[in-house]
Simulated assay, not measured.
Amino acid sequence: MSSNWLDGSMMDVLAFGWMLVLWFVYGRFADKLPGDEVAPANLNQMMHQLRRQWMRRMLDRPERILDSSLTGHSVSATTFFASTSMLVIAGLLGVLGRAADAHAVVQSFGFTVLSSELLFELKVLGLIGLFMVGFYKFTWALRQFNFACTLIGAAPLPPVTGPSRDRFADHAARVMSLAVVSFNGGIRSYYFAMAWLGWFIHPLAFAAGTSAVVLVLLKRQVRSRSQSSVAEFYEATGR
Rank of each mutant, 00 (worst) to 15 (best):
K137E: 15
K137C: 15
K137S: 14
K137I: 02
F138T: 03
F138R: 06
W140G: 15
W140K: 13
W140T: 15
A141S: 15
A141E: 07
A141Y: 05
A141M: 10
A141V: 04
L142R: 04
L142D: 00
R143T: 05
R143Y: 05
Q144R: 08
Q144I: 00
F145I: 00
N146H: 06
N146I: 06
F147W: 09
F147K: 04
F147L: 06
F147P: 02
F147M: 04
A148L: 00
A148T: 03
A148K: 02
C149F: 04
C149S: 11
C149Q: 11
C149P: 01
T150R: 11
L151T: 07
L151A: 15
I152F: 13
G153Q: 12
G153P: 12
A155K: 11
A155I: 12
A155L: 13
A155T: 10
L157D: 08
P158C: 11
P159F: 13
P159Y: 14
P159S: 09
V160Q: 13
V160C: 12
P163G: 05
P163K: 06
P163N: 02
R165Q: 11
D166H: 12
D166Y: 11
D166T: 12
D166M: 11
R167L: 03
D170S: 09
D170P: 03
D170F: 13
H171S: 02
H171K: 06
H171C: 03
H171W: 03
A172S: 09
A172N: 08
A172D: 06
A173D: 04
A173H: 03
A173W: 02
A173S: 13
A173T: 03
V175C: 07
V175S: 05
M176T: 13
M176W: 15
M176P: 06
S177C: 00
S177M: 00
S177T: 01
L178P: 00
L178Q: 07
A179W: 07
A179C: 07
A179M: 10
A179E: 06
A179R: 08
V180N: 13
V180K: 13
V180H: 10
V181Q: 09
V181T: 12
S182C: 13
S182F: 12
F183W: 07
F183C: 03
F183Y: 11
N184E: 00
N184D: 01
N184L: 00
G185T: 09
G185Q: 08
G186R: 05
I187M: 15
I187W: 10
R188D: 14
